[in-house]
Simulated scan of single mutants.
Amino acid sequence: MFDGAFFRRWLAAAAGAVEREADRLTELDSAIGDADHGANLKRGFAAVTEVLDKELPETPGAVLVLAGRQLISTVGGASGPLYGTMLRRTGKALGEAGAVTREELAAALTAGVAGVAQLGGAKPGDKTMLDALVPAAEALGDSFAAARDAAEAGALATVPLRARKGRASYLGERSIGHQDPGATSSALLIAALAEVAAA
């Protein structure tokens, strides 16, 4: 079972991963986006860590809802609302339970990812964060490691795709050959989850 402290550790690990990889995320985004993905997420997850340390929400659901709200209020562009929606929806789906199973988290994450699809109007294959998140949520039913591997494979699989949503879609054919920054940062989050679960 995974309690609120586990989810706080996950988001702290995610913040660390985003900080380490911020330059790479921005580099990916400079090719097909606004060149601000790394900086925006770094700022957003730093704010998440700060608010979680201050307010210390106890349940898994409360941790994720608070983190999601903080991302929405802190991060500009599309990534704040999208990541914020994912975390909030996942948190709401977990309800008020003091601890949750991996299977319950997988079901909740599926609901969170559906919220992202609804908000962005995208689907897998559109070269977005969903290309990493959808397979990760499905694989989480098997194991944390399977979710991490599925997310990483999904992010890599965006390279040959043509973007159909977001700023990258304006480039048309020129978006082909670049890895999607949102799928890449999504894979970082899932990798952080697997790392904390294995600790």
Rank of each mutant, 00 (worst) to 15 (best):
Y170I: 08
G154P: 07
R162T: 13
D131N: 14
V134F: 03
G154S: 14
A145Y: 01
A137S: 15
A146D: 13
G154K: 02
F144D: 00
A139V: 05
P135C: 15
G166C: 07
L161C: 07
G154Y: 02
M129I: 13
A145G: 10
A147C: 12
E152Q: 14
F144N: 05
V159C: 11
K127G: 03
R167C: 06
Y170C: 00
V134N: 02
E152P: 01
T128S: 15
D149L: 08
R148C: 08
T158E: 04
A146S: 14
E138T: 15
D142I: 12
D149T: 13
A157F: 10
K165E: 12
T158G: 06
M129D: 00
K165A: 05
L130N: 07
A157T: 09
E152I: 00
A132G: 09
R164N: 02
D149G: 08
A151M: 13
R167Y: 12
P160D: 03
A153D: 14
L161Y: 04
A163F: 13
M129A: 14
L130H: 07
L130R: 06
D131F: 09
D142E: 15
T128H: 13
A147K: 01
R164L: 12
S169E: 09
D131I: 04
D149C: 11
K165T: 06
G166D: 02
L133C: 08
G154E: 10
R148D: 07
T158F: 09
E152C: 02
